[in-house]
Amino acid sequence: MKRTLLLLAALVLSVPAAFAQSWDGPQWAVVNSSSCFLRLKPDYESGNESQALMGTVLRVKGAERYWRQVDAPDYRDVWTTELNVAFMDEAGKDAWIAAPKYICVAEYTHLYAEPSLAAARVCDFTLGDLVRREAAPRCGWVRVSRPSGQACWAREEDVQELEAWLQSRVATREQLIATARRFLGTPYMWGGASVKHFDCSGFTQFVYRQCGIVLPRNAREQIHTGEEIPYDFDLMQPGDLIFYGTPATARKPMVVAHVAMYCGDRKIIHSSQVVRISSLTPDGEDYYEREPLGVRRILGHVDDGSGIRSVLTRPWYY
């Protein structure tokens, strides 16, 4: 009997965090920090599934202490902490989506309490973050507000009006590789999806989004998008995605473990330890010797029903 009770107690303690306390607060939240982690459980030791950038809309579903269970654009039933978000009701969420915004175009900078580099820093501000536009630029500065409504200032050179940014996106093979190379040396982190750190699919998704194309978040989803291309150096083009992992067998499904971007000249650029360029031939520098699972071409297949969206046809971060 005692052993049975101990087993039951252990089972209760191991119940997944998905069984969250009900949440009767605002049903929406918007990421209010430069990026926030999205974890599997309400615990800092839990696995990190992804990151969401400032301005991303989340649906709030549950609570556990200071953690909130949310649905994000690419994930369901993940957890973040309450101080990383601004809570909103339906009207507040709709107002945020409709508000005129700036997007951060600097890789890493800050928002300031006053229009001066000597002023107190409000928070860090990274590539792709969104803030509400409050006033026209003045003397090299723009007055903005975070999703929480906190007023602050950004340097004019660090931001661009979101609508202008969306319209200016160009997705060419050359632009994809130029964008990817900007992040060389960025550290790898599982679940990383910001300029601070990338995992492999977070890197490919971020690069494509900077060029105006929204991919699914995970490599296991990205491999089913676009057009299948033979693994042939004469046929592959810069920007094609090459996938690695374990092929399917009669008993086990395919496992996609890694994705890289082909950059021409028999080389790939990918996030593996750091964002780096590797050779696909044994005599090249930093030879990447894993056998590929397949190759997918993204360009030419935007909004064709294969899971690839333009930033113009998908509400931004929502």
Rank of each mutant, 00 (worst) to 15 (best):
H270W: 04
T179G: 11
V207H: 11
C211N: 14
T249R: 14
R296H: 12
L280D: 07
R297S: 10
A248Q: 13
Y262K: 03
Q210H: 09
L184A: 06
F233V: 13
L299G: 13
G191W: 11
R209V: 02
H301D: 10
F203H: 02
V259N: 15
G192N: 01
Y208Q: 02
A250S: 14
P282M: 12
L299S: 13
A178E: 10
I213W: 07
H270V: 00
S278F: 07
R220P: 11
V275Y: 03
H258M: 02
S194G: 00
P253Q: 08
G239Q: 03
L215S: 12
D240M: 03
M261F: 14
M254D: 02
R220N: 14
R276S: 00
R251S: 11
Y208E: 10
P187C: 06
P187K: 04
P187G: 01
Y262L: 11
H301V: 01
H197M: 07
H224N: 06
A260W: 10
I229L: 05
D283M: 15
D240T: 09
S194W: 07
I298W: 06
P238C: 07
H258W: 02
A193K: 13
C211G: 10
S272V: 00
G212S: 05
W190C: 00
I277H: 02
N218V: 06
G284T: 12
A178R: 08
S201K: 04
I223K: 10
E289K: 08
R297L: 00
K196E: 15
G185Q: 09
Y287V: 02
K252S: 05
Y288A: 11
Y188W: 10
F203Y: 08
S201T: 09
S201N: 07
Q222N: 09
V274W: 04
L215A: 03
K267H: 15
L215K: 08
I213R: 00
A219T: 08
W190G: 04
G212V: 09
D232P: 02
S272Q: 04
D232V: 14
C263M: 06
F243N: 08
V295T: 15
D232A: 13
S194C: 06
V275R: 12
F198T: 05
I268A: 09
A193G: 02
A178T: 02
D232G: 08
D234C: 12
T225W: 13
L293K: 12
R296Y: 08
R296M: 06
G185H: 02
A257E: 15
I269V: 08
F243K: 05
G294R: 14
E228D: 15
W190T: 01
F203C: 00
D265Q: 11
L176I: 11
E228T: 09
R290F: 00
C263E: 09
P247C: 03
H258L: 01
P282V: 14
Y188I: 00
R217V: 11
Y287N: 12
